[in-house]
Amino acid sequence: MEDAVALEQVVRKLADTQRLAVLCTDERGSPYASLIAFAAAPDLKTLVFATPRPTRKYANLSGNPRVSLLLDNRSNREEDFAEAAAATILGNAREVAGEERESCLALLLGKHPSLSSFARSPNSAVFRVEVEAYYVVNRFQSVSELHVRR
């Protein structure tokens, strides 16, 4: 079983290699899942993503900033049961503006340069997620939590 250093590496690898994550928001008391392109800050304490404003997730986030995200490296093969790793992320999402929006966009587009026109569109909102914890699952059923030190 991993220690904290190894677990942090598992998370870092997921954050670096995965392009997409599942984002869960609160739709008037019901869970709502969407697929998003994301990027993580080097310290893994912040994630960023962009969304057009007329979306359900945008409306949901306006009502409740609590989010959960799922990052994983499954390959849709039987081997995933033994080999895949996943991290459930808990945190708060907040739309950013001004300079903060620019720095978040730089982080996001550094990883996804092809999304430039989508993310920079005036009607796209840029969100910053302050991560509280990663719940890391690997070896099928081994689960450890990493709580962010603030």
Binding site: D3, A4, R139, Q141, S142, V143, S144, E145
Partner: peptide, 17 residues
Amino acid sequence: PPLLETPSFLQRDRQLV
């Protein structure tokens, strides 16, 4: 004993196999 923290994170094991 395993190290259960890094400068950024505190580890808490939830499900042990």
